[in-house]
Amino acid sequence: MWSAASEVDKTPLDVAHPAPPLPLSQLKLGQRARVRELRLPSPSHGHGEQLVLRLLEIGFVPGEAVRVMALGPGGREPLAVRVGGTMFALRRHEAEHVLVDLLDEGQ
């Protein structure tokens, strides 16, 4: 379930999602998606497993529906992401550890 960032070929564990997953950070405003897996940071990334652990703890678990509700001024970051019944503000470098499958095209 945990993929390392250094992995080039990721074999999806779930055959129901043949398309390659997208990092949450690339979702557009209003797009809905479902969390597929979390990507562990590479050692050079500056933050350890703690970040992924916290993302999991606040609800970014595989199978959970997510949606980008707002983007900060400039349209890049931070992202306001709805997950479960909660909304979290994430920077891109945090959101990119969540790999998602797109559900619809959004607005």
Partner: peptide, 9 residues
């Protein structure tokens, strides 16, 4: 680089 935000709204 890489300062955390991760803040509940």
């Amino acid at each position: 680089a890489h300062h955390p935000l991760m803040m509940e709204l």
